[in-house]
Design a protein around this nucleic acid. Structure first.
Lengths: 342, 342
DNA sequence: AAGTATTATGCAAGCGCTTGCACAAAATTC
DNA sequence: GAATTTTGTGCAAGCGCTTGCATAATACTT
């Protein structure tokens, strides 16, 4: 088999423990010995076996990355690639590996996380989603296993490490932006409210309306499943209201474009007849017609921060829980129109 | 610490090896003993330590997934999420974990792969890219370590397991499609030719032109870096040719949309004035204006097949190298126009 | 009833590494 | 120059599990 620490030790006339200490650059080993051992390691092409090392040292040097479920991957473009890029960046800098969940259902994912934790596959976990009342999250919390969430936890906000955008605030900002442009009838096409991100944005939308003495109205709110089931019909109905909205907030750019397409089929123009604004600022939104006004949520940074937070927690298991909000940017393009008189 | 096999053994009045065999469902253990041991495991909340198990069994139950580099993640939407979804599906079904590369440069990635292989972190590797003359690939090949590529290898095609689309053929198909519509002046906006996928598509484009007695012309070919540097200018020049192209083939939908935007700025309409066709069929391409004619390359399936192929190789290290081409579909939408007389 | 085959379990030697402790040698102190 | 401290290395006991081989117990032959 491969050359082990013992082979090196024999060849270098030292004990295995010395070799181990040379690898760890232990200060108590003389430079002379270190040099000698390193030369032998080199010449024998020694490479440490991380499995063995980690078993002995009771660590994994790996963090688990858990996505809501692999099936939704495609829909949350570009979230996944970007957040992975952020996580990778920090993880690589700290020589940590990434272990990815693969499950397709909530239960499968839960089982996987249990395997990661109890099976000693990872030193900590990053949850890439925050769902209301999530079994996996509760498990992690009860086990007191190091983890962070990309997203605000529904419960125990002060006992859990997380990073997120301030989704309530950005939803407010978006509504405020529209109101400033003179809009009063503002519709909201939401995401799955079982995800906290969607619930928060909806809440921000409501709160902002209230701030402006505009009442929240059922007819201006389309739920995710209604839209997914028959988006075209949902939009048709929305625009057929006696007082149709003059602006629509969509929870994601891809939804926004889908809406725009249906509007077009109804011969309603964007932004001339109705304004559209959305979240997540896909890369394509810059190039596509009409260029979409969208909130850039800085996914890359979310990944970075989540990983850094996790590392702190791993190093200091007893530290206070903390969280961080990552800044967003409203990217104004051409999908919203002012109704204000010149 | 956590409960081990030894604790269970003691409690159940059997030896550790028996417990181990119960876990493995070894046929030589009586049902009675199995039942007893399982009850004890249950009541003690035993959970196997995979680290230890894998060390002893000389396996990892993990496959390494290596991306070209994390920085490009964003640009290759939706490739990464979709291929991961495919890989996950197969991996999960076989109880395999996924270990993701994190490196940002070729050299970092190479080092990571060495660590995966020599450090016994994975049982096999999936390369999510195929680059010309790739150090990592050569290493894997020379080490005879199990691996597959999503993409055609540049060299040693018959000695390496891989899955891919038949990119030369689909590029030909695309050109043929345009020619059938009456186009003769067909431009090609390529990807980085250091990646085999781009080289293959370019090759298919050239070959198809030849098949139709249309000569390949420099002026109709824009290289990736030219486009990235100043796409707008590149397109301007292209369309300012004495005989501008009537159709443009773009190597990715996102590039196609970027082109369309520049064309629009030049007051050139798609598809009325120039047709556009591209590869990869992003999810958005269905909704966005103009709906793009694009080749769906079935990324999900590429992920599935690559994983299955890798598993075969892991199980049978000595088997013949094999490869598989995954079918593609030309999704005809509204970005190409026929020049043929009615 | 003795011999053979089969089934069920245990023993013990790993897998390759880390690390607390002991201890010898060298350096420092007074 | 003896006593003390510092430095450098080795010993051996793990980490928690697997597995080839031996052996005990039981079942099957004739």
């Amino acid at each position: 088999m491969a050359v082990t620490i013992i082979d090196v030790a024999r060849e270098a006339n030292v004990s295995p423990s010395t070799v181990s200490r040379v690898i760890a650059d232990h200060p108590r080993i003389s430079e002379k010995t270190k040099k000698k051992v390193r030369e032998v390691m080199e010449s024998m092409h020694y490479y440490p076996n991380f499995q063995a090392r980690n078993l002995a040292a009771r660590t994994t040097q790996t963090i688990g990355v858990v996505m809501a479920n692999s099936a939704t991957l495609a829909f949350q473009n570009p979230f996944f690639p970007e957040v992975i890029r952020g996580i990778s960046t920090t993880a690589h800098a700290c020589q940590l590996g990434l272990y990815l969940s693969t499950g397709g259902t909530e239960e499968e994912i839960f089982q996987e996380v249990v395997a990661m934790v109890q099976g000693r596959k990872v030193d900590g976990v990053i949850l890439l989603y925050s769902r209301v009342d999530d079994k996996t999250l509760n498990y992690l919390r009860e086990m007191q296993f190091p983890f962070t969430i990309v997203g605000r936890p529904y419960d125990f906000e002060n006992q859990i490490d997380f990073v997120d955008n301030d989704n309530q605030q950005i939803a407010k900002d978006v509504v405020n932006y529209l109101v400033d442009l003179g809009h009063r009838e503002i519709a909201f096409i939401g995401g799955d409210v079982h995800f906290v991100v969607s619930a928060d944005r909806l809440e921000g939308y409501r709160a902002a309306l209230e701030d402006h003495q505009l009442s929240y109205q059922e007819k201006y709110f389309i739920q995710d499943y209604a839209f997914e089931q028959d988006g075209k019909e949902a939009i048709r109905q929305l625009m057929a209201e006696e007082q149709p909205p003059t602006a629509i907030v969509a929870h994601d750019d891809s939804v926004a474009y889908e809406i725009i397409r249906y509007l077009e089929q109804l011969e309603i123009r964007v932004p001339e007849d109705v304004s559209i604004i959305s979240f997540n600022n896909h890369a394509l939104s810059e190039h596509v017609k009409p260029p979409l006004t969208s909130v850039d949520i800085n996914i890359f940074e979310l990944g970075i921060q989540a990983t850094e937070l996790l590392l702190k927690r791993i190093k200091q298991p007893e530290r206070e829980a903390s969280h961080q909000f990552v800044d967003t940017t409203l990217i104004v393009r051409d999908s919203c129109q002012s109704l204000n008189p010149r």
